[in-house]
Design a protein around this nucleic acid. Sequence first.
DNA 1: TTGAAAGCGCTAACAC
DNA 2: GTGTTAGCGCTTTCAA
Lengths: 364, 364
Amino acid sequence: MVAGVSGTPTVYDVAEHAGVSIATVSRVYRNPDSVRAQTRDRVMEAAKQLGYVPSGNARGLASRSTGVLGLCFPDYADPDAEESAEETEEARDAGDEAAMLYSDQIIRGMERASRRHGYALLIAASLAGGPESLVAKVAGRVDGFAVMARTVPTEDLEPIARRLPVVMLAGPRELDHLDHIEVANFDGQRELTRHLVEAHGLHRLAYVGGDPASPDAEARFRGFAAACREAGLPEPAEPALRTSLMTQAEGRRVTEELLDRSETDAPRPQAMLFANDQMAIGALRALERRGVRVPEEMAVTGFDGIPLGQIVRPTLTTVRQPMRRLGEEAVELLVRRLRAPEVTPASMMLPVRAAYRSSCGCRP
Amino acid sequence: MVAGVSGTPTVYDVAEHAGVSIATVSRVYRNPDSVRAQTRDRVMEAAKQLGYVPSGNARGLASRSTGVLGLCFPDYADPDAEESAEETEEARDAGDEAAMLYSDQIIRGMERASRRHGYALLIAASLAGGPESLVAKVAGRVDGFAVMARTVPTEDLEPIARRLPVVMLAGPRELDHLDHIEVANFDGQRELTRHLVEAHGLHRLAYVGGDPASPDAEARFRGFAAACREAGLPEPAEPALRTSLMTQAEGRRVTEELLDRSETDAPRPQAMLFANDQMAIGALRALERRGVRVPEEMAVTGFDGIPLGQIVRPTLTTVRQPMRRLGEEAVELLVRRLRAPEVTPASMMLPVRAAYRSSCGCRP
DNA sequence: TTGAAAGCGCTAACAC
DNA sequence: GTGTTAGCGCTTTCAA
């Protein structure tokens, strides 16, 4: 093959052009100091002239590593869905901010940490399976990757996790040889509940949970229940209400349901604690429409700390998940395991912190 | 090599296990229909048992394509910087929201569009050069990629752009064989300026620009100047003030400078138009501290539409850049060029829209 | 429909 | 310090 004639230049072209062997070209790129300066310059010059760019694939294949870490996250928006032309930009933004829930923050955290360790980041949102499933695609191109809970079927993950480092984020470990990182759902909800009781003197509390199959939502409820017990209040065995989707719409719906019920039945609760921010924000809207003042007549709290919580009025009291940190720690675990594949699987629990804002009465 | 004995299973292992040739295994993954159902099932079964995952590197090398698109974006935060333990979480968040300026939105846009076309997305923030520069790393692992303006030296980009599709985002084309997408900076600033004049009757306007080397900032200024001329106001040849970093701190600084100057000199302007939101938000803080009411005594506008603009009080009037769309269009251009490498370079200009909020007097 | 064999462009031993 | 030589794990003609 004559240098410069073919499509993209390779090490061979550069080597020929510079009058060295391909091994030397390779060295210049991998470990410049192992080559005499003069030789190195010749190679670099040739590479520049030819427009040579090393093939990541070839390097990866030969060296069995890619220099890339990965993330599989849930498909937060159907990319095929046509956006309704009727919603205003503002409204669309608000919705997006909410949807942006976790993923963006985690991506940012992982990107930063990856960069610090010299890795690039490959991201892909979950899609339905098949032999060419998402995970397989990601797994084949990275040195290790993180998976957000419930994005990938365990059976797809299992064979892959045997071959390269995988860390499970924000969920149960699923496979016992995985590293995994959780967030202190129990502690956070417990602290928030205690605050309502101790700082605001509330004692008729209604918890709105999610799908019983969601470990996060359940852990939060248990935190709530524990705080109730500790405060000498009746300890509920089940959330007062549940929604399965945990959306704003559902939050609004259950709130109206509760208000209707209270008019006839028992006294209305003094506070509603939601298993996530989205529902809580839906509730805020429902309460406003029904003329129930927040927080005077009803305190409202969420969980997650999504940006929208700071924009709504009243601003939402919540528990903030350290999502960026989750991403950063994920990378640290991956890097650690890459260096020492045999270390026993780690399990981290990241602390959370409550943000007391207007909807509980902490700010005007 | 005996199947199952070595580290990670390969096509050879699967083939042996299933009693077929490696070509057949390959076919099952690339084009299942070209293999008899019965054979296919045997292969799939073997693959599953062995925990076989195709190597993306090997596939890429053999097929000369990766199924991955890339993005190079500016390093929005130094990953090595220790976060000051003193700033509160709220403050840190606000800062982050601001910093999140473009990149996150573009990433989201690209991720969505990539997914729609069956690609994954590789992201990497810019880092200093060397033979192993960021671009080279990305370029070697993707089928095509987008570059945000001024993240990559033109000379690094040139050889790469000869070999694979590159689209330049939010900046001048730099290399004339690149596709590129810009945002209507001129139009947006012109519309916003006209609004201040026509809807609010303001006519003493001060424009705060950025680095003269920033094409965006300059185009915005020209839009401002054009609107002035069209309104019969004096047309400035230069911004009243400039900052080079365009940060909140700088916005605050120039605002105080202007207030100090006005006390002695000429009458104070009725409006300050900033070349970006960050500076405008800094200005809001400075004005508040100096007791200048916004918008009554001074209208303030930004440019970009960052989320923080909706959180600050008064909310910030601005021009919103369609960042997510930018990312989506970037992918469309890349995919198009991948399919037809010879089409002439495209140049898009995305429309923007002004968001009239409190800081110009449009909302209470 | 399936198999055999030749690379894809690089890295990594090992020689010199 | 530099060159030689095997592969890395797949895709892809070309035959059968």
